[in-house]
């Protein structure tokens, strides 16, 4: 089984984001990690190949030079090699990202499955996997929590709110957007981390792909820090007095009860 996993290099969710200028941020001040949802994607791909006893997991990343660390992290989890499409900056439009992923994958081989995360935690776009699917004319389901493969069919489950679960079916090759619940991503061990450093990593410049960049794109105009709430007003007195006061404030002042 030939599996491609699309992985994004993103600032740590716990990192402080300092806005610089109109629409930039200080990316040298924060630690970067593999996009948390992409870990479920890598884990699932690696487990599939381990179970089958054959096949290959290829990590594909569209990202800046520094994204290599994220690709090595995915390789430490068990991916066999990587393809890095190099771009400047963090905010490449999702349509262009999907076209770059498509070109990189098609240059390399024929996928049976392409895994992605359900969304990237930096731009929170929820769409690259769908654009990739449309561009490659493949079926796609995202936010997948369970996957079974039988006779060239993928049977997947996703949650659609209120605890309701949908089971869907599609033919391979297909694209699967992974989310929490699909598996338990492994913590790579030291020897795996060392081994990952020697795995094959191919670099391609975005411009070398010869993509049509005249497609409709989104444009990031402005980035603003969201001010944190200030310290809470703490209730005083006995438990009953505190709760009474809280209920009074929520009812009379904030009118939310």
């Amino acid at each position: 089984m030939q599996i491609y996993v699309c992985v994004k290099h993103v600032p740590d969710t716990a990192a402080t984001i300092t806005v610089v200028g109109e629409a930039g941020y200080n990316d040298t001040a924060c630690k970067f990690i593999i996009n948390p949802y992409d870990e479920y994607a890598v884990e699932e791909a690696v487990q599939r190949v381990e179970k089958a006893g054959s096949g290959e997991v290829v990590v594909v990343t569209v990202g800046p030079e520094a994204a290599v660390s994220t690709m090595r992290a995915a390789m430490a989890m068990g991916a066999h090699r990587g393809i890095h499409v190099k771009v400047e900056g963090q905010f490449l439009d999702s349509t262009l990202t999907s076209l770059a992923l498509k070109a990189a994958i098609e240059q390399d081989g024929t996928p049976n499955i392409i895994f992605t995360g359900r969304n990237a935690v930096d731009t929170e776009g929820f769409q690259t996997q769908y654009r990739l699917a449309a561009a490659m004319n493949l079926p796609v389901v995202s936010e997948v929590v369970n996957l079974e493969i039988n006779d060239g069919q993928a049977i997947v489950q996703r949650e659609v709110g209120g605890g309701t679960r949908e089971t869907l079916e599609m033919k391979l090759p297909c694209i699967i957007g992974a989310t929490k619940g699909l598996n338990e991503p492994r913590y790579p061990k030291f020897p795996d981390i060392m081994k990952a450093k020697k795995k094959e990593l191919k670099e391609i410049d975005f411009d070398q792909l010869g993509l049509d960049t005249s497609v409709d794109q989104t444009e990031l105009l402005k980035l603003e820090a969201v001010p944190e709430r200030s310290s809470a007003q703490i209730m005083q007195g006995s438990v009953r007095e505190q709760v009474n006061e809280l209920v009074r404030i929520l009812t009379e002042k904030d009118k939310v009860l």
Binding site: V121, T123, E124, E219, L220, L221
Partner: peptide, 16 residues
């Protein structure tokens, strides 16, 4: 919309 887990709000132009 939110960017970076709600730490920033982005203003995005939709060009279609």
């Amino acid at each position: 919309k939110s960017h970076f887990s709600g730490k920033t709000i982005a203003t995005i132009k939709l060009n279609s």
